[in-house]
Amino acid sequence: MDFDLHEHPHRRYNPLTGEYILVSPHRMKRPWQGQVEKSEEEIRPQHDPDCYLCPGNSRVGGEQNPQYKNTFVFTNDFAALKEDVPSGSLEKGDLLRAKSEKGICKVICFSPRHDLTLPQMEVSEIVKVIELWQKEYQELGSHPEINYVQIFENKGQMMGCSNPHPHGQIWAQSTVPMEPVLECKHQGDYLQKYGRSLLEDYVKQELEEKERIVLENEHFVTLVPFWAVWPFETMIISKRHIANILQFTKEEKQAYAQMLKQLTILYDNLFETSFPYSAGIHQSPTDGLEYKEWHFHHHFYPPLLRSATVKKFMVGYEMLGDPQRDITAESSAERLRNLPRVHYKESKP
């Protein structure tokens, strides 16, 4: 019997982190007795007087939002990181260690409209979001005590989002977090070994095989990574080897906005629901070093598995051993790729 990637259990390697995932494609043939129904679509107003992110409303901390017309950013009223943390540490031998961490946390409202999400926004409006990401990455990264700026979005109650108003967050801190540290190391090792960008070579190989490509335009590719953990996980990767969001040309910024809109439309169309996910940008740290190895990319980690209400859980073996998935990266890419490009709400009479 010959080994078949689409039939037999196997482990896949993640070259960005050095980690592995167990893939069990044969389990897709087992009977399913879980939920499959669609969730009821929530109808939200354009402006919610009780929303602390809507224009003109008061936030929990007492500050009043301006009557903003496009994007709006403010320092998080309940930030996980703070600037005024005294320097200090605790060390009790090699086993008990702690060190103070300084940082700045911000909230970015994508739109003044309470009822919109990225797939329903105009490309020109998403460009304004990208421009604000650029501004905040540059300004926060220029602080002498800020060495990494993490831009991300949690969408949907399923991902712990406490407010449905379209928004994301930025956590900027003095230490580079572990996930970017791993990606930095493996990209650096690859550059030293081959003299080329890891993700540039990876994109070229994926474009040749085409099996895991979901979307493509002149400047960006969206694909399901060969090593994807979540059922419909994707990455947006720049075709050009650039380290961070500040290096975009005007054309790349427009193409990136188009890609964000197109991908999130596909997600919503998959189960005809406002698709939940955690997503974030990985780019070079801001500690003043060059980071020739870094290649800009945007991760999307959505939890939904079989319907608008059934999600994948990380339990049992996955918490104690390796992550595991049943649906292969190739089959999830095919499903996303074949979905309509028009948002399901716009296509209904």
Rank of each mutant, 00 (worst) to 15 (best):
Y277N: 01
L266H: 05
L207Y: 02
F271Y: 14
M235N: 11
G288R: 06
A243E: 04
A308N: 15
L246W: 03
L207H: 04
H299Q: 13
Q283F: 00
S238Y: 06
E233L: 03
P303I: 09
F232G: 09
T286K: 00
V221S: 05
L223A: 11
I281E: 01
A333W: 06
R212E: 06
E318A: 10
M235K: 11
V221D: 05
K210R: 14
H298P: 01
W227P: 01
D287T: 07
F296D: 00
Q247R: 10
V229W: 08
R325T: 15
L289M: 14
H297R: 08
T222C: 15
S332I: 09
M314D: 11
D326R: 08
A255R: 00
S278W: 00
P285C: 10
R212G: 02
I281R: 10
W227Q: 02
K210V: 12
H219N: 15
H241N: 14
T309A: 14
M259G: 07
K239Q: 06
H295I: 09
H295P: 11
F313E: 12
L266G: 02
K292A: 09
V315R: 07
E211K: 15
K253A: 05
L223N: 04
D322W: 10
E206K: 08
D322F: 15
M235H: 11
E211A: 13
F271L: 10
D322K: 13
H241K: 13
F271P: 04
P276F: 12
L223P: 02
Y291E: 05
K312M: 13
A279P: 00
I245G: 07
H298C: 04
P225T: 01
A257Q: 04
Q254H: 07
I237Q: 03
I236E: 00
T249E: 08
A333T: 01
N217G: 06
G316Y: 01
A333Y: 07
R325S: 14
V315I: 15
L304K: 12
A228T: 05
V214E: 02
A329N: 06
A333F: 01
V310W: 15
R325H: 07
K261C: 07
K210H: 12
